[in-house]
Write a protein that binds this DNA or RNA. Structure first.
Lengths: 254, 254
DNA sequence: CGCTCGATTGATGTCATTCAAGGCTTGTGG
DNA sequence: CCACAAGCCTTGAATGACATCAATCGAGCG
């Protein structure tokens, strides 16, 4: 991301910058290389493919595309969704910088869902066969990869709990609190952030309609729990929102 | 399971039978050792821990238990569920012979859900640290393990689609068709099987109430799509049920 | 300006839940 | 053997939460 100060004084560094480099990446404490020593990070760097820009509303991959790479998000946001035989779509997740995309494709060697950029974004291509080769040499990397896959499993189990058991209000609180904590983990404000997705996307993800999301926002605003201006959100009462999300508190419909 | 005919004539075989043995297991084409050659199966056998019996309604593990083993089901059925802060439970899956339990625990080194036997069952303990050691020596095993984890991710995405988008009738059809195909893959009848779980468990899994499940069963029965006697189910019109599951067909409420 | 797209808000409708009652099966003890 | 209780399931009626339908608004943009 940071350009070398002068092309002439450091051509090698510049060439290096054209490829992805975990060593210089600000996300390497969140991303795949987490916990690796410098030597191993360099070995990982050697197999990382090119960076790839994905403009807003463009697909990173589509369902049934052959599986070659995992993708680590450098910056930007994505949504993943799948489409059932009758054409209905379900958003299965929103992903942000430092998160890994494509793990659902390993099982069938084809992608199982679509991944679309919510804004102009950039990812690192990670050729999966080469990554697997590397695993036998860097057990730490392998173990961390398993943790990441397992984390994806538990994340989805939490969404199942949300969709199966929670009322609209709790679902939406869970959604907000989740975003908040993920931004916090990235050093951004946990109380003030931008929704990168439309109301419709939020509704689809939470198993609700766009109208319900709109009403929930209005209600939360009226209760003084947050401020909204278009997609800019400010959480005014995070404690209350967390209580709602945990299900230990509930608000009157008003 | 099968005891040696005589302890005296084959003590070695007996000792062997006390441990799990993938080589002799009828499920090794479905389970972890899938695709391994004999030599590698033997190496896997060396690390497999003891077999463990789990009686009906007993826990194999509970949420927050420290993670040591994965478990491969030899026979029987399990359900996994998690409980949220306010005490509500969501069943995240039903597992049967040849399937792997515990992958959600890798990320935090503690189990993320409870696993309970739906009937008297038996599992093989697979000590995860030893399995990870083996991965660096058997790439085929590692690759297959990744496929299994990835498959769990896509399975859960399908459930998210179900819970987020489908009406009760379609959810239930998906549930039946899914059981049917899994029994078929194990060589059992795809049209005639026993539900190992209560109506309440089915409802919880599908995000519905026990009453809804009961009504759905009655309706499907009245339509002539299936027969039910207690937990014994017979699918009379699998084609129709598949169409319902795919969302290309829909029935009147009656 | 006028168009489109996303969002908001209100009125109405519907599907699944909740509440309630009763049936069937199984197990226990007299 | 029957009586009785406990679990699990079924069925009906009323309720409610969210969806659907419809109208309007506002921002962005050609």
């Amino acid at each position: 991301m940071s350009q070398p100060i002068s092309y002439v004084t450091s051509p090698a560094l510049n060439v290096h910058a054209l490829k992805a480099s975990c060593a210089n990446c600000s996300l390497h404490q969140l991303c795949l290389p987490m916990g690796l020593d410098d030597a191993d990070i360099n070995r990982l760097d050697q197999i990382i493919g090119r960076r790839r820009r994905v403009l807003r509303d463009e697909s990173l991959y589509r369902m049934d595309d052959p599986f070659r790479n995992l993708y680590a998000i450098r910056f930007g946001h994505f949504k993943t969704y799948q489409i059932n035989p009758s054409g209905e779509q379900q958003i299965t997740g929103f992903q942000m910088a430092g998160e890994l995309l494509g793990m659902d494709a390993i099982s069938a060697d084809r992608h199982h869902c679509d991944a679309v950029a919510l804004e102009d974004s950039e990812v690192c291509e990670i050729p999966f066969p080469r990554l697997e080769e590397l695993f036998s040499h860097i057990p730490t990397l392998l173990h961390h990869f398993h943790r990441i896959m397992s984390q994806e499993i538990t994340r989805e189990q939490n969404v199942m709990l949300l969709l199966g058991n929670m009322r609209a209000e709790q679902r939406f609180a869970v959604f907000l609190v989740n975003l908040s904590s993920r931004y916090a983990a990235r050093g951004y404000s946990p109380t003030s952030f931008q929704l990168r997705m439309s109301r419709e996307d939020i509704g689809n993800y939470l198993g609700l309609t766009i109208e319900s999301i709109s009403r929930l926002l209005s209600r939360f605003k009226k209760q003084g729990w947050l401020k909204v201006d278009k997609r800019e959100v400010q959480l005014l009462d995070p404690v209350m929102l967390k209580a709602l999300a945990a299900g230990t508190e509930s608000c009157s419909p008003m």
